[in-house]
Amino acid sequence: MRADRRPVELPQELRTLRTGVRIVLAFLPGVASTPTELCDAQQDIHVATLLPTVPPGRP
C-alpha cells in the first residue's frame, strides 16, 4: 500500500482486504481435514499455518 493514498480511500481498501481474508479463511478448514500422508516436518508446517486462524477464547 502506498503512503500517499488519500485517507478516504483507506476504509474501502480495508473492506476489500477483509473480504479477501474471509474467503481464504473459509477454505482453510477444508484443507485441514483433507486426508493426506504428511511427514513430520509437513505436519509441523501445517499446524503452524492453522494456529493463527484459531479464534481467541472468551474470558
Results as ranks from 00 to 15, higher is better:
T19W: 02
R6I: 00
Q43P: 01
R2H: 04
L14T: 08
D40I: 03
M1N: 07
T19P: 01
I23T: 03
D44P: 00
D4A: 13
A3T: 10
T34G: 00
Q12N: 09
L28A: 14
P11C: 03
L17P: 00
T36Y: 02
I23S: 02
R58S: 13
L17V: 14
I23D: 01
M1H: 07
P29A: 10
P52Y: 06
L17Y: 13
R58A: 14
L50T: 09
L28G: 00
R58M: 07
G30T: 04
T19I: 01
P29Q: 04
G30H: 09
D44H: 09
P11L: 07
R2L: 12
P56A: 11
A26N: 14
Q42H: 10
T34D: 06
A3K: 11
I45V: 15
R22L: 01
R2G: 06
D4V: 03
D40M: 09
C39D: 13
V24C: 03
S33M: 06
Q12L: 06
P7E: 03
I45D: 12
D4I: 08
E9Q: 12
R18N: 13
V31Y: 08
P35T: 05
V54I: 14
R2V: 03
P59V: 07
D44L: 12
T19H: 07
E37Q: 08
A48M: 07
D4M: 08
T19A: 15
P7H: 01
Q42E: 15
P59T: 10
L50N: 06
E37N: 06
D40A: 15
P7K: 01
L25P: 00
F27D: 14
A26D: 11
R6H: 14
P11W: 02
R6G: 06
P29D: 01
P52D: 06
V47L: 13
M1R: 08
C39G: 15
V24D: 04
V47Y: 09
H46V: 07
R18D: 10
E37F: 05
S33Q: 07
T16C: 08
D4T: 11
P11G: 02
P11K: 07
D4C: 05
V47P: 00
E9W: 02
R22K: 10
G57D: 15
T16L: 15
S33K: 01
A3N: 10
D40C: 03
T19G: 14
L51T: 14
P52G: 06
L25V: 02
L25R: 14
P52S: 11
P7N: 01
R58G: 07
R5T: 09
I23A: 00
A32P: 01
G30V: 03
R6D: 12
L51C: 03
V24P: 00
T16G: 15
I45S: 09
E13K: 09
L28I: 13
A48K: 09
D4R: 07
R18K: 14
R15K: 08
E37S: 09
G20A: 11
R5K: 07
P55L: 11
G57H: 10
R2A: 13
I23Q: 05
